[in-house]
């Protein structure tokens, strides 16, 4: 657990050019508050690079660099090797990448990096599409979402994204790494605690953080946190962590709110109707059936 009152005053990400209400901004600055000044940061070509490091306005205060799009995991491996070579103590090698940079073009490199067992902390902030290039679909774009490359089409045409969101968390769990978790800006205490655990993990750790994007999803900037909460409460995002060889579900809503209450808040889902809401709800229930069978709810100790 992290006592938020103990978090440092100093902002290690400041003056960035992200859109108003950008959850990735919140995610990145809070992570740095936990990992602290002794952090070496790499981030790939992404929203984060575009809004933080265009000369001469440098928004990150820690040593950092822009990595090639596909290479975040691999540059972290090189940095971790350097930490060992230079015999540095008490430092964090941190990567922050988006959903495309992690689950699509960067998947091979992140898989390699965590498989090698390097002491790195890899964070995927998931805004569910390639936002920096203008909202194109990624493998983490959810079913039904209209993006510029999965458009909704004219009436009776396409429904937007045709595939369900890939389960990146389970892919990373399959690597049997020491620590892996999902989080959301909807639950800051949970998120901060997971960052702290990941930071202290002696080996690779991975965080997948749901990060709503007002621009790409189509909602008012002030509602970022609310949208994130609705995703969790409707069961379309889950909070879980994997450590000591088992997955724990950190939060299970007593009763899911109807998915339409989440979907109707965003322009990207505006074209959907009851038929698609049903498809999404059925998929959600299937996923949760799997989750409930395989993962343990919070607070229940293994017999």
């Amino acid at each position: 657990m992290v006592n938020v009152r103990d978090l440092p005053e100093r902002e290690l990400l400041y003056g960035h050019k992200a859109c108003p209400g950008c959850a990735a901004g919140t995610v990145a600055r809070l992570i740095l508050k936990v990992t602290g000044e002794r952090t070496f940061l790499a981030y790939p070509a992404s929203c984060l690079s575009t809004v933080t490091s265009i000369y001469p306005q440098m928004a990150f205060a820690v040593p950092s660099f822009t990595a090639p799009f596909a290479a975040t995991g691999a540059v972290l491996s090189g940095m971790a090797a350097a930490v060992k070579a230079k015999k540095m103590q008490d430092v964090t090698v941190l990567g922050i990448a988006g959903d495309g940079g992690t689950a699509d073009i960067g998947l091979q490199a992140v898989s390699g990096a965590v498989e090698r067992g390097d002491r790195i902390l890899y964070v995927c902030y998931d805004n569910e599409a390639y936002m920096n290039t203008g909202i194109q679909r990624s493998s983490l774009t959810p079913y039904g979402a209209a993006t510029t490359t999965s458009p909704a089409g004219k009436a009776g045409g396409a429904i937007g994204e045709k595939k369900f969101k890939k389960n990146l968390f389970e892919i990373m769990v399959a690597h049997r790494i020491p620590y892996c978790a999902t989080a959301s800006v909807a639950n800051i205490a949970d998120l901060l605690g997971k960052v702290a655990k990941a930071k202290d993990t002696d080996g690779p750790s991975f965080l997948h953080i749901h990060a709503p994007c007002p621009t790409g999803w189509g909602f008012a900037a002030e509602r970022t946190m609310e949208i994130a909460r609705l995703a969790v409460e409707s069961g379309l995002w889950f909070l879980a962590e994997y450590q000591d060889g088992r997955v724990t579900l950190n939060y299970r809503p007593k009763e899911f709110i109807p998915v339409r209450e989440y979907l109707k808040t965003q322009k990207r889902f505006r074209h959907l109707g009851p038929a698609e809401w049903n498809v999404i709800e059925e998929q959600r229930d299937r996923e949760w059936a799997v989750i409930s069978g395989r993962w343990e709810p919070a607070g229940r100790e293994k017999a």
Partner: peptide, 11 residues
């Protein structure tokens, strides 16, 4: 890419 990361760290 790993060489890049390490070289940036001064190796």
């Amino acid at each position: 890419a790993a060489c890049l990361g390490a070289a940036l760290m001064g190796c």
